[in-house]
Design a protein around this nucleic acid. Structure first.
Lengths: 214, 214
DNA sequence: GTCTATAGGTTGATAGAC
DNA sequence: GTCTATCAACCTATAGAC
């Protein structure tokens, strides 16, 4: 509890911005305190270490997204359609208001280093299982391995949009503008829904069955 | 020209491995020379700087992939099918033999920092334009902005597979095994081809037309 | 809670002997 | 071409005054 414009929040905001722009390793605590206009030692006072700061920055954004996702799934009733599930998965991420959040999440979901333990198992495993279960109900004919693969493909599309949202208009010659969030969400859902509904190819399907039998 | 097992190549191999495992920033030149069992100063002798080393490591893998892609497109004749185009795009990347290359390319294609200039415009712009042109021929009814978006979605799926290939069996409980390359390639192509062929949603389509008119 | 000062370690790069 | 030795710059983290 402090009179000044909360130092702790200023650090989180600055760290979020710079982590997203330059990556976690390339951003020093000095970069962050300079951006936030606070003293260097304030980081280690409010957070214990750079690693804990990264945890706090990531958790602050991922947890509300997951609550929104669960809320949308619950609101869709016991048997949501494929489109409803995909919307619950994507909309809370692709509708984010603050410009700094999408690059941050892009970095977070792209870095395989220790994020399997620190991000996936901590923040994404539960929601991933829930979405997998809903998808299995909505697509009863799809083999479970195929479903799992396609969910990863969908996560890949989402992550790529997050990572490149800032530069996409530039490298597409203005053709792709992610700022119209609703249009983008509709586009992605149409694309992914068609992919999820694609017929399962015979050779690949047979190979899965053979693998199961040994 | 040297008698010993080429120091320069040893550095490239070690750098490729460690860059892929830990990322470019997290890997020091000392890490690389220790892994390669060469002297620290050898890096600055054979390559001028860490940045140039990164360039060399990336270029060594991307350029042959692009040549393979162009060869497959040329071999498919003047009007390749959607599946042929996707196969030319994906197979040279997903069929890579050396384990270290996929994580390296995953890092390379995920890091937005300065890679728009150093990787995209240098190594990916030309092949991206060629694939875009072939896709436009194969899908004549699709608006150009929609096509561009869907090509980015496809790149996102490919990049995600590269980034997570090492941990995918672990976090999927063994359901997803990227080691069967041919099955994976078939899976991805089926998924993406269906996405590319998805009907264009009216609202999104109209919005694009309205934007063009101002 | 906020600051200065600094410890203690790592980094990329190079000079110069062999 | 390969090595040792070293520099100057940077890093995270902390101790201690206010």
């Amino acid at each position: 509890m402090n009179e000044k414009v909360d130092t702790k929040a200023r650090i989180l905001d600055a760290a979020e911005k710079l982590f997203g722009e330059r990556g976690f390793e390339s951003t020093s605590l000095r970069d962050i305190t300079a951006e936030a206009q606070v003293n260097l030692a304030a980081v280690n006072y409010h957070f214990q270490s750079k690693d804990s700061l990264i945890d706090a920055v990531v958790a602050r954004r991922i947890e509300p997204i997951n609550r929104l996702r669960l809320g949308m799934l619950d609101a869709a009733g016991p048997n949501p359609t494929l489109e409803q599930i995909l919307r619950a998965f994507l909309l809370p991420v692709l509708e984010l208001k603050r410009d700094a959040v999408m690059p941050l999440l892009g970095r977070t979901l792209s870095d395989p280093h220790q994020f399997v333990e620190k991000v996936y198992k901590k923040h994404l495993l539960a929601i991933s299982e829930r979405i997998h279960r809903e998808l299995a109900k909505a697509l009863p004919g799809l083999p479970v391995a195929e479903l799992r693969w396609r969910l990863y493909f969908a996560a890949g599309v989402m992550t790529y949009i997050l990572s490149w949202s800032k530069v996409l208009p530039d490298i597409s010659g203005g053709l792709c503008d992610p700022s119209d969030r609703q249009a983008l969400i509709d586009r992605v859902i149409d694309f992914l829904a068609a992919g999820f509904r694609a017929p399962v190819n015979e050779p690949a399907f047979e190979r899965v069955l053979l693998e199961k039998e040994g």
